[in-house]
Structures are given as C-alpha cells and as structure tokens.
Simulated scan of single mutants.
Amino acid sequence: MPPYMQDRSGRRRLAAVTLLLVTAASAMTTLTSCGTDDDGDGARSTSFTPRPTPPDTSSFSGTPPSALASADASVRASASAAASSASAAASSFEASVSAETARANAEATAELKKVPGGGNARSDVSLTGKPRAQTGGVLAVVVNITNRTDRQASYAVQVDFADPSGKVVESRIVGAQDLDPGEKVQPLAISRKPAEPVLTPRVAKAQRY
C-alpha cells in the first residue's frame, strides 16, 4: 500500500476513536447530571424522594368513643343540669314560705310517720294546680285542706308526684295546725324535679289529729 494511503487510513481510525471517546464522555456527563446533585462544595450526592412511613399502631391503646356513647354522655349531662336548675328554682320559691308554715310542715312529717295507711282525712283534702308563671317555672300544687269536723284540728298531708308510667318519683309533705271547724287553708306542695317528664300529683296520705 502506498505511504500516502496508509497515512490517510490512520487518520480515519484516529478520527473514529476520538468521536467514540467524545460520545462516551457526553453520555457519562448526561447520566451524572441526571442522577446526582451538587451540594455546593463540589461533592455530588444521589437525590431521591422519600416514601411516607405508615404510623406504628402497635403502641396505640384504647378505642375512640362511639357516636352513641358521646350522645349518651350529652343526654346525661343535660338531665343533670336540668335537675340542678329545677332544684335551685324550687329552693328559691320555697324561701318565700313563712317560718310558721315551715314549722307546720315539719310537724306534719313527724305525724305521718305514725300513720300506716292512707290516713283518716283524705276526704278533707283536694289538690289544685298552680300556674308555673306564678312559681318561677317549678311544679307546685295547692293543697286545699278543710276542717269538716265540729272541733279544732291539725292536718298532715303527703302529696306524691308520679311520672307518666305511674311511678312515684317524689313525695312532699305539708301541714296545717289548729284549724277551726269549717276553716280552710291552702299550703303548697312544691316539686324539685325538672319540667320534663310531666309529673302528676296525688294525695297519698292525709291525717287529722
């Protein structure tokens, strides 16, 4: 082969090798730039997106309150608040009762403890409702006591308050002292229960002594 053809063939091989090296270097640069990040001081570090780690529920204890339990707790709290409010209102209304009436009620309570049945004066007693607008919203009934005998007498009366099922949920005692024949008095029997459910008052005992 003539010398000038050998020289030309060598230059072509050199050019092909150079092109191959440049292509390889370019590919390496592209891969490096795609897979690493420069941290500012010349070092490169591989970047990645961390996957969220699910919470470890093995250390959890107890169970959240159910909607029913929460509702039940709310109802109990409301009922307790209503009962406290009704009791406070009854106490405020009763504070206006005279000391003489308070003494009569205390004596009537002691007297009824000695009565085994319904008493001997149920026919002398009746009940009349009193508007809540006049009692501060509490349930109060007028106990009409009339001395139907021909001599002076005292009375002790127990009023029961029953719920819609007929169950007695509260009892109040009132008294009247030294009534003359034909005389009538009207003490109040005051409930301390909330307005709901509606209670029905009735004469449970009435004793003349």
Rank of each mutant, 00 (worst) to 15 (best):
M1P: 04
P2T: 06
M5R: 10
M5G: 04
A16T: 11
L20C: 15
L21P: 12
A24R: 07
T29Q: 08
L31Y: 08
C34R: 01
G35Q: 15
D37W: 06
D41N: 11
G42T: 01
A43N: 01
T46G: 09
T46A: 10
R51A: 11
R51D: 06
S58I: 03
S59F: 06
P64E: 03
P65W: 12
L68C: 09
L68E: 11
A69I: 02
A81M: 04
S85V: 03
S87T: 09
A90Q: 00
F93C: 04
E94K: 14
E94Y: 14
A95I: 08
S96V: 03
S98A: 14
E100C: 09
T101H: 14
N105I: 08
N105Q: 08
K113M: 10
K113Y: 11
V115M: 14
G118Q: 10
D124K: 02
V125R: 12
S126F: 00
T128F: 10
G129L: 14
P131M: 06
T135Y: 01
T146I: 05
D150Q: 00
Q152P: 01
A153R: 09
A156S: 15
V157Y: 09
Q158C: 11
K167I: 15
V168L: 14
R172K: 12
Q177I: 07
K184P: 03
Q186N: 09
L188R: 12
L188V: 12
A189N: 13
S191E: 04
Q207D: 07
Q207E: 12
R208F: 02
